[in-house]
Design a protein around this nucleic acid. Structure first.
Lengths: 337, 337
DNA sequence: GGTCATAATTGAAACGATTCAACTTACGAC
DNA sequence: GTCGTAAGTTGAATCGTTTCAATTATGACC
C-alpha cells in the first residue's frame, strides 16, 4: 500500500539504486536527478521503511533507555540529557519504564534485543546482572546508569553517593549541629546505604557529634511523614538539631510533619533539614529545602557517550566507569533568616 | 554474527518453515519437533530479528505514545495505563517526549512513521493537526489524548474540563464561599479556558457570588507563588474566601504564599483552596489540597482501546470520541477541622 | 496391505531497502 | 578520432523472517 523505493524509481524514471543514493549519498548524484527523485518522493508521499533498512544494515538507529521510574524527575531529567546527545548523533531514544520490577525490565530488554537496538542504557532493578551480560555477549552494548561499582565488567555512570552523604553531614556539622538524625531506607537500596555510610564517616570525625538512624520502608512522601512524626515525638527529649533525609520526597514529608501538629518545631532554628536529589518540589516547599544535587542531564548525556565508546571499544580495552561528584544546594531549611 | 532461523533449522535438522512454525504456531508442530527446535534455539542463543519479521509482516508490534511532558505525573500515570493494556495485547509501547515543542513532536512522528508503528497516541503540542492527518492518511491509526473537541475526524480521549471547573466552583459555593478567585493561564491553553468557563457558569447561578481572574504565565509552582502573593495582598480588602487553581502545581504555590509572610491567611478558615489534577504532592501539602481528579490510567488504557478500534474501523464508520468526567477529592484545604 | 484423511513438514517467494561491481556517459587531452 | 578518467547510474544479490501451496508422513479402517 505505502509507496516503496521501487515506486519512486519508476515514477522518477531512474533505478532503485539511484533512489537509495539520493536518500543516503545525495552528493554522488547529479543535481537534476536528485530533483527528479525528490519530486517523485513528494508526489507519492514516500516514507522509507525503517524495518527494511535495518534488516539490511543489521543495526537500528535507536537506543533503549530503561529506567526504574518514569514518574521520578531524576530519571526524566536524565532522559532529557540522553535524548539531546542521541539526537546530535542522529539516533532516537526509546524510553521504557521497568517500574522497579525485574520482570518488566526483562520484558523490555527482550523486546529491545529482538529490535536489535544500537545499545541499551539501563538502571537495573536488582543485583542480578545476568540478563544484561547475556545481551551484551550477544553484541549489544550495555551501559549501567546510576549504578556503579558492583560489576567492573560493565561500563557505567553513577554519582558518588558516599560523598553526597558526607557533604550533607558536613554541612550540618559546620552549622554547629551535633545531634543528627538520618532518615532513609530500606538499606538494601545501595544509594541509601552509601549516603548513610558517607554521613556516618563525617559525624565520626567530630567529637561530641552523633547520628541516629530512622529506617523507612520506601523513599516516599508518606514514609517521610511517618518518620517526621516519630522524629517530632523524640526531638524534644533527644534534642535533635539536624536531620538528613535520603531523598527529597522523604525530606518534604518530614518537613510537613515537623511543621504541623500542636507543637511545631521551627526549621531551621530548632532543626536543620537536608534532603537529596534537589527536585523542584524541594525548592518549592514551605521552607525551601537544602539538598544534594546530582548532575542529572549530564549523567544521561554521559551514559550515551559511554555507549558510543563501548561500541568502538577494542577487545582488551577496559570499560569506562564514570563517577560524578554531587554538590550542595543550600536553602532556608539550614541557613534560614 | 547472531544466529538466524536458518542456523536453528540446520542445527535442529528441520526446515526454516518449521522453525517459524515453532515460533508462531507451536500447536501445528509435533511435540518432538518443538523440543528439538527449542533445544537448538537455546544452544545458539537465537533471538528472532524483529526487523525481518516486521518487514515481512508489514506492521510492527509497537505503538507510539507522544506526550507533552514526561516529567508530569499526569502523563506518566497515563502511560502506565496504556502500557498495561498494550501488554495484554502483546504490543509494546514506545514513549516519547515532545516537551511541548512542535518540532520535537514532528521529529518523533517521522521516526515512528518510518518505523511503521502499529499506531500513534499523541497529546498534540499545537493546534496544527496537519502532520497527524498526513500520518493517518498514510495508514497509521492516530488517537488524540487529553485533547477533545477540535477536530471530529480524529478519535480522541479527553476529560470534561468544563465539568471539572464546575465541580470545583460548586464545591466552594456549597461551602458558603461567595468571593472567589480563579488562578490560571495562559488562557490559550484550552484546558485552562475550559476549567475557567465551567467555574464561571456555576458562579453565575448563585446570587451574590463573584469570581475574579488572576492570570498566570504558566502552570507552574513559581507562577502559583507569584499569584499567591498577589492574592494575599488583595485578600483582606477584597475579602476573598475561596480560590480555585487551574492545576495543583499552582495550588501548591498559592498555598505556600498564603501561609507565609507576616500575616498568613488560614486555610481553609479564611480562604478555601481547590486545585486540579490530584497529583500526589497535592495530598502531601502542608494543608492537603482538595483537587479535581482525572482518571489518568483509564485515559491511557482507553486511548489504547480506541487505537484498536480505529484499526478495525470500516470506511464510513464514525470515529470514537470518549470524554471522561472528573471527580472531586475533598481534603483539608476546604473542609479543615 | 491398500486406501484415505489428516497431520506434519518443506522450501521457494516475498517484504523493501542498501550495496557494490559493472556499466554508461561526458569530457578533456592529445 | 581515440583514449583515459571521472562522474553517474544500474540492477542483481542480500539481509532474516513469514507464508502457503505442495509434498510427505502417520494412522485409522476395512
Amino acid at each position: 500500500m505505502a509507496a516503496s523505493v521501487k515506486d519512486v524509481a519508476a515514477r522518477a524514471g531512474v533505478s532503485v539504486g539511484t533512489v537509495s543514493n539520493v536518500l543516503n549519498r545525495p552528493g554522488s548524484v547529479k543535481q537534476a536527478t536528485v530533483d527528479k527523485v525528490d519530486r517523485a518522493i513528494a508526489e507519492l508521499g514516500f516514507v522509507p521503511n525503517g524495518a527494511a533498512r535495518q534488516l539490511r544494515a543489521g543495526i537500528s538507529r535507536s537506543i533503549a533507555l530503561v529506567v526504574l521510574d518514569v514518574g521520578n524527575p531524576f530519571f526524566t531529567d536524565m532522559a532529557r540529557g540522553t535524548e539531546r546527545r542521541a539526537h546530535e548523533e542522529g539516533l532516537s531514544v526509546l524510553l521504557a519504564n521497568s517500574d522497579e520490577n525485574a520482570e518488566h525490565e526483562l520484558r523490555h530488554l527482550e523486546t529491545f534485543e529482538r529490535q536489535r537496538v544500537f545499545g541499551v542504557l539501563v538502571s537495573p532493578v536488582g543485583d542480578d546482572l545476568a540478563p544484561l551480560r547475556r545481551i551484551r555477549d550477544r553484541g549489544i552494548p550495555v551501559v549501567l546508569v546510576d549504578r556503579g561499582s558492583e560489576d567492573p565488567t560493565f561500563a557505567s555512570v553513577s554519582v558518588d553517593d558516599e560523598a553526597g552523604g558526607a557533604i550533607a553531614a558536613r554541612h550540618l556539622l559546620d552549622l554547629g549541629r551535633r545531634r543528627l538524625a538520618f532518615v532513609g531506607g530500606p538499606l538494601r537500596i545501595r544509594q541509601v546505604a552509601d549516603r548513610y555510610r558517607g554521613a556516618v564517616a563525617e559525624v565520626n570525625k567530630v567529637a561530641g557529634a552523633s547520628m541516629d538512624f530512622f529506617e523507612t520502608q520506601a523513599l516516599s512522601l508518606d514514609e517521610g511523614r511517618l518518620a517526621g512524626l516519630a522524629l517530632r515525638e523524640r526531638a524534644r527529649t533527644e534534642h535533635y538539631d539536624g536531620v538528613f533525609a535520603a531523598n527529597d520526597l522523604l525530606a518534604i514529608g518530614i518537613e510537613q510533619a515537623l511543621l504541623g501538629g500542636e507543637e511545631p518545631l521551627s526549621i531551621p532554628h530548632e532543626v536543620a533539614l537536608v534532603g537529596y536529589d534537589d527536585i523542584s518540589f524541594a525548592a518549592a516547599a514551605v521552607v525551601p529545602i537544602t539538598s544534594v544535587r546530582q548532575p542529572r542531564e549530564l549523567i544521561g548525556a554521559t551514559a550515551f557517550d559511554l555507549l558510543l565508546a563501548e561500541r568502538d571499544r577494542d577487545e582488551g580495552q577496559p570499560r569506562e566507569r564514570v563517577i560524578f561528584q554531587p554538590e550542595l544546594a543550600v536553602r532556608a531549611s539550614t541557613i534560614g533568616s
